[in-house]
Nucleic acid binder design. Structure first.
Length: 577
DNA sequence: GCCGTTTTCGGCCCGACTGTTTTCAGTCG
C-alpha cells in the first residue's frame, strides 16, 4: 500500500513550501491531505477518481499528484521543490523551536545545511548576532537539538497512559484544584502518544502551576505561564497543563482533545453560523456574547451536531456521519462479557484456571476461554495434543462446579511456517474456541505469510486469528501481508479477527478494525492475559474498537453467555453468530 | 490547494508563550 509514502510526500512538499515562504493556506492544504491519507484504511491505489476527491482535502490537483505517484513512483512537484531548496533544511526544521523562518535565516546567513552543522555553530556561540537571535535563542536551539537526539518520538499508549494517570492523581492533591481531565491524543486513545495534555480549573492557578512544575519526575520546565505550562519528564515525555475558568471548561476540553483537523472543521462550521469558537467558549460573532462553553456538548450542539465521542475525532468521516445522524453507538467496556484469549499455567501463564475464573468473575465477566499455546511454541511451554485433551477434562470438571459462569476450552494453535496447524483436527474439533496465530517466520514473503493465514482460516475449527499482523508497537512492524486478500478470506470463512488488547500490540489496529467492520467481518476483543492483572488491558482493546467505529453488535465477546453458547454450538461449519 | 444553504472567487481556526522586542514575529499545538 502506497498510502504512507504519498502522505510523506505531501508532508515533505508542505515543509518545502514553508521554507520557501509560500502561501500558508496552500501549505495547510498539503498537510491536511497528508493527514487524511495517512489515516485512510483503504488502499489509495484502489480508489476511483470520485472516491479519491471525496477524501476531505483532496481536490483535482492533489488527486492528479496521487495518480502521478502511483504510476511513476514520484511527483514532479516534489522533485522540483527538492531542487530549489537545499537538502537538509527540512531536517533543521525538525529541531523544536526552529521553524521555517529560522531555518531559512540560518541557511542564508551561515550556510547551515544540517543539524550537525547547526549544533557546532551554536556551541561556538556563532548564532548570536543574527537578527532576532541572541543568547537565549541559541541556548534554546541547543536544547532543541538535544531533545531531537534523545528522540521525542511517539510512545505507545500503554506506556504513556499510566504515567498520565499518575500525574492526575498527584495533581488532585494540589490546593484550589477544581476539574481535572486528560485531553489530547490520550483522550482519543491514539495508539501512540507524543505528549500528555491535562486540562484543569483552579481557584489558585498560579499556585497550581508552581506545584505542577515541581512534580516529582519533572526534569525540565519548557515554559510556564499563568494559564499554560509545559514540562519534560524523566522518561522524555512532555506534559502540558492548561488552566481555564469553569465556564470555559467544556470548550477547552473540546479544543484540547483535538484532533486539530477535527477542530478546524468544527470551527469552520461555527463561522458559517455566525459563531466563533475558541478554548474559552462559543461566541456570537455580532456582539461577542458567549453562548456556550461550560459543557463540551455545547460546542457540538451550537454547530448543529450531536456529541461526537473523542475516539472518532480524526476528521475521517465522523463529521459527515454526525450531520447525517449515522454516528455509531460505540462499544463500551461495560458491553464486554468475557475474554476469549487467556493463558494459564498449563503453558506460559501465571495462574491455574480457577484463579483466572475468580479474577474474571470479579470483573463481572460471564465467561473466559482458556487458549494455551500449542507445543510448537516450546519456549512458551506449549501443550501436546494429549495435554490439550487433559486440560479439557479439567475444564469440563470445573464447569460442573460453576454457576453463571463458563470456561470455554480452547487453544492458541500455532500456524507453522508452511501454513499447517500445530494441533491435529481431531483435537481441535473437541475444543469450544480455537484461536490461531503466527509466532515464527515473521520475515517470510508477503505471499507466504498471507498463505499461512489463509490456510489457517480455511481450517473449519479455527474461529479466530489472533494478533493478525504481529506488530509490536515501537519494536516490530506488522507483517507484510496482503490485507485485502486476508480480509476477503476472513469474511468468506466467517473467521473472526482479534483486536489484541495487549498495549504493545493493539493488533488489529483501529484502521484495520474499521475496514473489517465495513466488510462485515466479526471482531473479538481479547487481552491475551498471562497474569490476572492483564485482564485490565481490555480497556485498551475497547478503545481501539471504538476508534474503529465498532458497535457492540460487531464484537463477539459482547454476547452474553447464552448467546455465545448458542453461537458455539451451531457447529463448526458456521463460525459466526 | 480546497471548497461552496451567503461563494466558482475569496475566503481559509485561534490563542499562549518566549525572546527580542518598545509592539511584534516566530513557533507551537
Amino acid at each position: 500500500m502506497k498510502n504512507q509514502e504519498i502522505a510523506r510526500a505531501f508532508s515533505e512538499i508542505a515543509d518545502l513550501l514553508e521554507l520557501k515562504g509560500e502561501n500558508p493556506f496552500r501549505i495547510r492544504a498539503y498537510r491536511r491531505a497528508a493527514q487524511n491519507i495517512e489515516s485512510l484504511s483503504r488502499d489509495i491505489a484502489k480508489l476511483s477518481e470520485d472516491e479519491l476527491t471525496a477524501i476531505p482535502g483532496i481536490g483535482k490537483d492533489l488527486a492528479g499528484k496521487i495518480r502521478e505517484f502511483l504510476s511513476h513512483g514520484s511527483m514532479e512537484a516534489l522533485e522540483s521543490l527538492r531542487q530549489e531548496v537545499p537538502p537538509g533544511l527540512t531536517g533543521i526544521m525538525s529541531v523544536p523551536g526552529v521553524g521555517p523562518r529560522t531555518a531559512r535565516l540560518l541557511f542564508e546567513r551561515l550556510n547551515v545545511r544540517d543539524v550537525d552543522e547547526l549544533e557546532a555553530l551554536a556551541r561556538e556561540g556563532r548564532l548570536q548576532g543574527l537578527p532576532g537571535i541572541r543568547k537565549k535563542t541559541e541556548e534554546n536551539i541547543l536544547r532543541g537539538i538535544e531533545m531531537l537526539k534523545r528522540g521525542r518520538e511517539r510512545q505507545p499508549l500503554g506506556k504513556v497512559l499510566p504515567v498520565a494517570e499518575d500525574i492526575i492523581e498527584k495533581l488532585k492533591g494540589v490546593s484550589g484544584i477544581g476539574k481535572l481531565r486528560l485531553a489530547g491524543s490520550l483522550r482519543r486513545w491514539k495508539e501512540t502518544i507524543k505528549d500528555i495534555d491535562i486540562l484543569a480549573t483552579s481557584s489558585e492557578p498560579q499556585g497550581m502551576m508552581n506545584a505542577f512544575v515541581r512534580l516529582p519526575g519533572v526534569r525540565e520546565v519548557l515554559l510556564k505561564g499563568p494559564t499554560k505550562s509545559s514540562v519534560i519528564l524523566g522518561e522524555g515525555l512532555q506534559v502540558d497543563l492548561r488552566v481555564v475558568e469553569e465556564g470555559s471548561f467544556g470548550a477547552a476540553l473540546q479544543y484540547f482533545t483535538g484532533s486539530k483537523a477535527h477542530n478546524i472543521r468544527i470551527r469552520e462550521m461555527a463561522i458559517k453560523r455566525g459563531l466563533k469558537i475558541n478554548e474559552y467558549g462559543v461566541f456570537r460573532e455580532e456582539d461577542g456574547k458567549r453562548v456556550g462553553g461550560e459543557k463540551e456538548e455545547d460546542v457540538y450542539r451550537l454547530v448543529g451536531l450531536p456529541y461526537i465521542p473523542p475516539e472518532l475525532r480524526e476528521d475521517s468521516g465522523e463529521i459527515e456521519a454526525a450531520i447525517e445522524g449515522r454516528l455509531p453507538r460505540l462499544v463500551t467496556l461495560e458491553d464486554i462479557r468475557g475474554d476469549l484469549h487467556v493463558h494459564s499455567k498449563w503453558s506460559d501463564g501465571s495462574h491455574d484456571i480457577e484463579e483466572l475464573v475468580t479474577a474474571a468473575r470479579e470483573l463481572g465477566y460471564q465467561y473466559i476461554a482458556i487458549t494455551d499455546h500449542s507445543k510448537g511454541l516450546g519456549i512458551a511451554g506449549g501443550l501436546t495434543p494429549e495435554e490439550v485433551l487433559e486440560q479439557k477434562q479439567e475444564v469440563d470438571a470445573l464447569n460442573k462446579k460453576l454457576r453463571g459462569f463458563r470456561v470455554f476450552t480452547g487453544a492458541e494453535v500455532d500456524i507453522r511456517s508452511d501454513g499447517t496447524l500445530d494441533l491435529p483436527d481431531e483435537v481441535l474439533k473437541q475444543l469450544d474456541f480455537v484461536v490461531a496465530s503466527i509466532h515464527s517466520g515473521f520475515r517470510q514473503s508477503s505471499r507466504q505469510l498471507t498463505m499461512r493465514l489463509v490456510s489457517a482460516m480455511k481450517n473449519p475449527y479455527v474461529r479466530v486469528i489472533a494478533h493478525p499482523t504481529g506488530r509490536i508497537i515501537g519494536e516490530r512492524d506488522a507483517y507484510e501481508i496482503d490485507m485485502k486478500e486476508f480480509m476477503r478470506v476472513a469474511k468468506e470463512t466467517k473467521t473472526a479477527l482479534e483486536i489484541n488488547a495487549y498495549p504493545m500490540r493493539l493488533d488489529l489496529s483501529d484502521r484495520h478494525a474499521r475496514e473489517a467492520k465495513r466488510l462485515g467481518i466479526p471482531i473479538v476483543v481479547n487481552t491475551d492475559t498471562h497474569i490476572v492483572t492483564q485482564f485490565k488491558y481490555m480497556r485498551y482493546g475497547v478503545a481501539i474498537a471504538r476508534r474503529g467505529w465498532l458497535e457492540p453488535g460487531d464484537i463477539i465477546n459482547t454476547l452474553n453467555l447464552k448467546d455465545l453458547e448458542r453461537f458455539i454450538n451451531q457447529g463448526v461449519s458456521v463460525k459466526k453468530p
